[in-house]
């Protein structure tokens, strides 16, 4: 089983782009989509038997949509119950003896204030991000890189 995990808060404008992407994905056999507010340790145990995982998150510093491989963090830096994608993979490795191959799809975000709507610019990125995610879902080998 592969997973696509959309991260973010739909009440904070562009932060909700990960959840919106999950809601818009086509169904692909053997791939599960999950929308989460934050990455928490419970998700590690769901990934024990996963082959691949794609994290989708809005990033305020990103200039363009980018897809990149991520490895389990060897030196995680956390202070609470919220994990980064790499740290979550590291925890999965520790608890399951195995971590799925990880990718991070970064989507530029511009507005993170209160609101349930995406900004116009983030909304324009959404179809592109969905296309990349669906290509990833259907292919075991996805090229890394970005798209404008």
């Amino acid at each position: 089983m592969d997973f696509v995990i959309g991260i973010g808060n739909t009440l904070r404008c562009d932060d909700g782009i990960g959840a919106r992407l999950i809601a818009s994905l086509s169904e692909v056999p053997n791939v599960a989509g999950i929308a989460v507010h934050q990455l928490t340790p419970e998700i590690a145990l769901r990934l024990c038997d996963a082959g691949r995982v794609l994290f989708v998150d809005a990033h305020s510093f990103a200039q363009r949509i980018a897809l990149a491989r991520i490895a389990p963090a060897e030196d995680p830096d956390i202070t609470g119950h919220v994990l980064s994608p790499a740290t979550l993979l590291g925890l999965t490795q520790l608890l399951c003896g195995h971590a799925p191959q990880g990718w991070l799809l970064s989507v530029p975000g511009y507005e993170f204030g209160f609101g349930e709507e995406l900004s116009a610019r983030a909304r324009a990125h959404l179809p592109v991000a969905i296309a990349i995610a669906e290509k990833w879902m259907r292919s075991a080998a996805v090229m890394e890189g970005g798209m404008d």
Binding site: P76, T79, H81, T87, L91
Partner: peptide, 8 residues
């Protein structure tokens, strides 16, 4: 000293 360290 966090949940990752606990896991290790």
């Amino acid at each position: 000293r966090n949940v990752i360290g606990l896991g290790a």
